[in-house]
Design a protein around this nucleic acid. Structure first.
Lengths: 342, 342
DNA sequence: GTGCGGCAGCGAACCGGTTCGCAGATTACG
DNA sequence: CGTAATCTGCGAACCGGTTCGCTGCCGCAC
């Protein structure tokens, strides 16, 4: 193991001088800079992260708390993780990935032991028991997902209410009068997945305003169950001419379901989903959709977190709750309802 | 910040005694143990990870090097990550997730700076530039994926050659005489994804032995391209009565393709895939498949890694290359070829 | 009663960085 | 030419743990 002492000895300077050259925090003569750099090069020196963390009280590590639930569609989570991870690295931070089921305890562990300079919480629930721990921690945190009480926290989320309105408005304007909303499983809502009802409530409200009938179901998060759910709902409501799909698994199953019913989109059925473009490409989903932008959300969360970590001012700035405005990616799956529909 | 000094003071003992009580490495009177524990409780003390790492030269962190490529099916990777992460936590380790494109540099960074006690490399290529760095590192490493030269490394992988033989044998025994193998994209092979040709070569060899015609194609990793690839291959070889699918995207697209061709499985077409059960459930794939067991592989890799980290003996034990024997999960998608097939 | 072994607790040193105050050398300026 | 200001490098202290060797005390055995 080569230490800064070795570097200093080889360069013929003191440890403190070597440290100053490497950090650049104090001015040094160019000759000494050169000697130190050469020594670093020759010895292949890399500072010891633990020692540095101890001395500076900074680890250059961000904790990432992901939660994986049985009743959620796992592949969607991966995109958030990658968004956070890539942005962090650009800013000079590594990621400590925590996937423990008991998120609150894990969060306490990594903050109390000062393994991390800050944390990003994914998949934040309406009443999330991690928030209490986070508020008590010394380190700042950023959330992806809006909880019931966002005070003293930085929050980033898609504007699900606006998304619900937008989806409904789009179809209503095309002339649809009876629509079906497919949400995530009811378990997700019970667990505190507030985004589900935020979108649903806003869509229902907008439907009322525009005098549109809106049926709503919770779809399963797995196939083939979700396929059955879709069939059942379409059987029950034959007048439906358009779908709002806030459920990744349902979106993935939909091409098959439509084919099985002999329907094609958009001629017989207009469809708008809510998922990421990456997701659409992976599964080649041909439906227009509200972009859920996991990479952008992850990026925003990390950027804000790093600001708070690095600037003294950032520490005390007022906290922000920032929504991404929903954007409709048009893939041509919506049209006027078929003539002859009620 | 509360330190072990605070605990010691409150308990009325020296710092070293407090440390000994907490580590249990030296015997202490039960009265003092009680006093120290009470002080810890009262102050909510948690040891500082950086300081401990500095003193013990152990971080209780494992580096996880994942690589995400455009031409690979990302959701499959997530399962390996979770397998590693969950096992690590059970054994008392946290995970530093590194997703940098330049894996070799990242590996050098985290090992040289001693952020990690060991590393797990995912998605190891035939000639992987990370291996050189790993061999030079002080910390042990475990690979998921077999490289060309596995010397001085612990390697865990599915036995892809055996998988290829097994798939072919199974269909040959049922009476099939003309089969199609759908592999990963050619880019994956060029990049060093050796498992692709290991399976393909073994299947071809077995086909020769059993006097079966085996056609082989590289399928795209995305839809709808891979659907087109499948249609084209089936058009070109109308005598094919069975499919070997070593390509997750192709497996996911296959139900649609079969339906489009008016084929049903297993009556008209027998199918065997190679993917995990979790993957099959997520996409409700009805095909029998060779279980790729990402969770088990991740678990084995971490277990072995931790043995090397923790036991002095483990450090010097001979290195292992361990293959998981392929197991066929029967989902009823294979049968004798239709009568009338050549 | 004396000698010896073992145990419990303490103090000091150490891990490898950073930082702060100080001193010696150099420059600037009056 | 003398003094003040500036610059550069050094030494020591510190971050918060762990560990090693020493000492004092106790109990046991002869």
């Amino acid at each position: 193991m080569t230490t800064i002492g070795d570097v200093a000895r080889l360069a013929g300077v003191s440890r403190s001088t070597a440290s100053n050259v490497l950090s650049g925090k104090k001015s040094t003569s160019s000759e000494i800079q050169e000697r130190v750099r050469r020594a670093v090069e020759e010895l292949g020196y890399t500072p010891n992260a633990g020692a540095r963390a101890l001395a500076t009280a900074q680890t250059q590590v961000i904790g990432l708390l992901a939660q994986f639930f049985e009743d959620e569609f796992a592949p969607a989570m991966l995109q958030y993780i990658l968004g956070v991870s890539n942005t962090a690295r650009e800013l000079g931070y590594d990621i400590l990935l925590v996937s423990e089921p008991d998120g609150a305890r894990a969060l306490k562990r990594i903050t109390d032991s000062r393994m991390v300079d800050g944390v990003v919480l994914l998949n934040v629930a309406d009443r999330d028991d991690r928030l209490e721990v986070l508020r008590a921690a010394e380190q700042p945190g950023a959330l992806v997902g809006l909880p019931a009480d966002p005070r003293h926290l930085d929050v980033f989320d898609l504007d699900f209410a606006e998304a619900g309105r937008l989806m409904l408005e789009h179809l209503a304007r095309l002339g649809h009068r009876e629509l079906l909303l497919v949400s995530q499983p009811e378990h997700v809502v019970e667990r505190g997945g507030a985004y589900v009802w935020r979108l649903a409530d806003a869509a229902a409200e907008e439907a009322e305003l525009r005098d549109v009938r809106l049926h709503a179901i919770f779809g399963s998060s797995h196939q083939p169950d979700v396929g059955r759910d879709l069939h059942a709902a379409l059987d029950a409501h034959p007048g439906v001419t358009g779908l709002l799909v806030n459920n990744e698994a349902a979106a993935a199953a939909l091409p098959t379901v439509l084919r099985e019913r002999g329907l094609s989109s958009p001629q017989d059925m207009s469809v708008i989903g809510r998922y990421s473009d990456e997701f659409a490409r992976t599964f080649s989903l041909p439906f227009s959709s509200i972009e859920s932008a996991p990479d952008r959300l992850g990026q925003m969360a990390v950027r804000q977190l790093v600001r708070r970590i690095e600037s003294a001012a950032g520490r005390t700035e007022p906290h922000v709750v920032r929504f991404i405005s929903p954007e409709l990616v048009d893939r041509g799956s919506t049209a006027a309802p078929p003539t002859g529909a009620r």
